[in-house]
Design a protein around this nucleic acid. Structure first.
Lengths: 212, 212
DNA sequence: GCCTGTGAAGCTATTCACAGCT
DNA sequence: AGCTGTGAATAGCTTCACAGGC
């Protein structure tokens, strides 16, 4: 019912609101959030509307109330749990970034097929060998998988995770994953983003030449 | 003229075509590319049309010809150069991922303000102190910046890069950057993606409960 | 028969614009 | 006066569907 784009923006708003909360601001107008998030005020109001939250024309939105309302939608009152597979450079970077930082979204386990990396704690996260995946996913009740293995192993990692009962995947490998229809997949393709930036940067450079 | 979404897909098609080339396949139909890329065949044909390339109804598209045509659009015949700022976990992961891998898109320099990380080669990339940024960007003719510093330093890093004359930014920090209008910015917000996956995974789980 | 190229239709997402409130 | 909430309009993107070709 709520679109993926809206969910993404709500996640961003929530982080921004947490910042405002920290700084002691009690209420906020749609155009203030909009400017921080880089979207229009109308967009913010629509997104807020989509979760059934209301502000007041006089005061705007209550900062903590709105943050709380977004949290309720995003996490449904429970803490979501995740696992990461592939403890290479990127995997470790993500563990360092996430572990312990997010109260409602916790990476509970990491997996790797390299025995040198398993059975110890890396960046605050317990690391298991791949063959314990199904068991750990079940006992920890993990719903989300983060795939940071090389491209050639990604499909097999996805298979294992889906088999284990995972319902959502965040995939950093530059390959299309084939998964059961009930599993949600989001691809985060860094090469693609970088190539896009290079293209539009080059375009700007070409425009400059022309305008000269 | 070509939309950012189309550019992203073209980048993906090019990688897929390179794979086919490797395996010796000479021609390919739109529906084959579509299935590999996870889009519709009509979408592929539109995207190909947007760069003015043509296939034949009998044989489909020439694999290397199409790959070449996409490269020409994306890189304009020159090699695009980039610099990365922030040699932490994530920065190193990206250096390991990109350096030397991509013939037309080369990360030429990394920057960090920590003296322990500078004036040496990290994952194949020369690492300079921040105060040499302007000079190196100029001498290497760098057009694209990749920001992997902590959120609090991102705006200042962006300022330095824009000042130095960069035209495109790939930003991993979860903050909105304010840059001159002629600079293209793409944000890659990992938290946002993960929260989105968690949301839709949770949704699927809830659906299951209901259908039970 | 099965493909490409493409006008036209259909969808989705965003923005406009204004009524209603304080 | 300046805000929110929202129907209506717009813009942008994707898919349909079919003419034309081998």
């Amino acid at each position: 019912m709520i679109s993926d784009k809206t969910i993404g923006r709500l996640s961003l708003y929530r982080r921004l609101l947490n910042g405002l909360e920290q700084s002691g601001q009690a209420t906020v107008f749609s155009h203030e959030v909009a400017s921080m998030a880089g979207v229009t005020a109308a967009q913010v109001r629509r997104d807020v509307m989509s979760i059934g939250f209301s502000g007041s024309p006089a005061k705007g939105y209550g900062v903590s109330e709105l943050a709380e309302a977004i949290s309720t939608v995003l996490y449904r009152g429970t803490t979501q749990t995740g696992a990461l597979i592939g403890v290479g450079n990127l995997g470790r970077a993500l563990l360092a970034y996430f572990v312990g930082r997010h109260p409602k979204l916790s990476i509970r386990a990491a997996f790797d097929r390299d025995p040198a990396k398993t059975n110890r704690v890396i960046n605050g996260c317990r690391c298991y060998p791949n063959n314990q995946l199904a068991e750990v996913v079940r006992t920890e009740g993990i719903q989300v998988g983060v795939i940071t293995v090389p491209a050639g192993e990604a499909q097999s990692a996805a298979n294992d995770l889906c088999q284990a009962g995972i319902l959502g995947l965040l995939n950093f490998a530059p390959v299309r994953l084939w998964v059961p229809a009930h599993v949600y997949v989001e691809d985060l393709d860094v090469s693609q983003s970088l190539e896009r930036v290079a293209y539009f940067a080059g375009q700007r450079a070409a425009d400059k030449e022309v305008t000269k």
